[in-house]
């Protein structure tokens, strides 16, 4: 499976300009041999991340956006030689007047396209510099889905900071976790790498190794009103090793070749996911089936109180 992770740097709110730029990137990728199977783009890749109230002006209807992407890919392809490709893209979604921070997985063919899955971000950061829940609604479902390339799951940015999310995605059968993200870089004390980038890398490697999954992380780039999106897109194999990574700054493409059979080899070597599948019902039962008093105690526990931002 040949993958391009596109680390893009949209112009804030300039949707048409950003779509044209994506068309130019498609033109660069569409003619390459061997063909790409999957192209992954970051969160909010066509608008920029911090939109505040402009979310309502710029949100996309998912079917219309998929059609636009399909047309863009076909227009960028060599004449009479459109190769099928899957595209993952993060975008603000208008679902009949309810707004989400979403990402979808679209399979594009020579004449049409099909949305295979839409994931609506479940964990909306609303603290410090983040204000998502003020403007968009929470997604309510985490699903793994079948694609032509195998079983996958999408997690958007903070979704992937909660260890239970990749865990449940893997339990539901995902072999590839795709993480579109927009992460403002911070922390310059450590030598050579932003602290926020290091944190991302550490948690993603840990999920990949524990569950035996590939992780494809696409980070937005560019500065948005002083907040620098810290790119650092990467691909991690099911052994937890980084296959390739991009710099924090600037627009780039990361090209990787993945063999999904590595998932079985990794899981045979370290069968933690199988162990978890056996024990998980007991673990979840201890959380959900306790007495009302126990649940109240849990929900009021200091560990669940929000700290200082």
């Amino acid at each position: 499976m040949k993958v391009a992770i596109v680390q893009s740097k949209p112009r804030k709110g300039q949707v048409e300009e950003n779509i044209a730029q994506l068309g130019a990137i498609f033109a660069q990728l569409a003619g390459e041999e061997p063909a790409y199977d999957l192209i992954v783009l970051p969160e909010a890749a066509l608008t920029g991340y911090f939109l505040e109230g402009a979310v309502y002006d710029l949100a996309f209807e998912s079917e219309a956006l998929a059609e636009r992407l399909g047309g863009l890919w076909r227009a960028a392809s060599p004449p009479r030689a459109v190769r099928p490709v899957a595209i993952v893209l993060g975008f603000y979604e208008n679902a009949g007047g309810t707004y989400y921070n979403s990402a979808f997985y679209v399979e594009i063919g020579s004449a049409s396209q099909r949305i295979v899955h839409v994931h609506r971000k479940m964990f909306l950061p609303t603290y410090g510099v983040f204000d998502e829940e003020r403007f968009v609604s929470r997604g309510r479902r985490l699903e793994a889905f079948e694609s032509r390339l195998g079983r996958m799951a999408l997690l958007i940015c903070e979704d992937a900071w909660h260890a239970i999310m990749p865990t449940l995605a893997a339990i539901k059968g995902a072999r590839v976790l795709i993480v579109p993200s927009a992460s403002p870089g911070r922390g310059f004390a450590a030598p050579g790498e932003l602290e926020s980038v290091r944190y991302w890398r550490d948690v993603l490697r840990s999920y990949a190794a524990e569950h035996g999954v590939f992780v494809l992380y696409a980070g937005l780039a560019g500065f948005e009103g002083g907040k620098g999106m810290a790119g650092s897109s990467c691909a991690i194999d099911p052994f937890g090793d980084v296959v390739g990574t991009l710099p924090a700054l600037g627009e780039h493409v990361l090209k990787v070749q993945l063999d999904l059979d590595d998932v079985e080899i990794a899981r045979a070597r370290l069968p933690l996911l199988g162990d978890l599948a056996a024990v998980l019902p007991d673990l979840l039962g201890s959380v959900s089936s306790g007495s009302a008093a126990q649940r109240a105690e849990l929900s009021g526990s200091p560990a669940l109180q929000r700290g200082e931002p």
Binding site: G185, F188, G228
Partner: peptide, 21 residues
């Protein structure tokens, strides 16, 4: 602070804000 990392970041900030934006 890591000097090279920080200088590169702030240089990009100024370029993006002044030239690109």
């Amino acid at each position: 602070v890591d000097g090279p990392l920080l200088a590169q970041w702030l240089e990009a900030f100024l370029h993006d804000e002044i030239v690109v934006r």
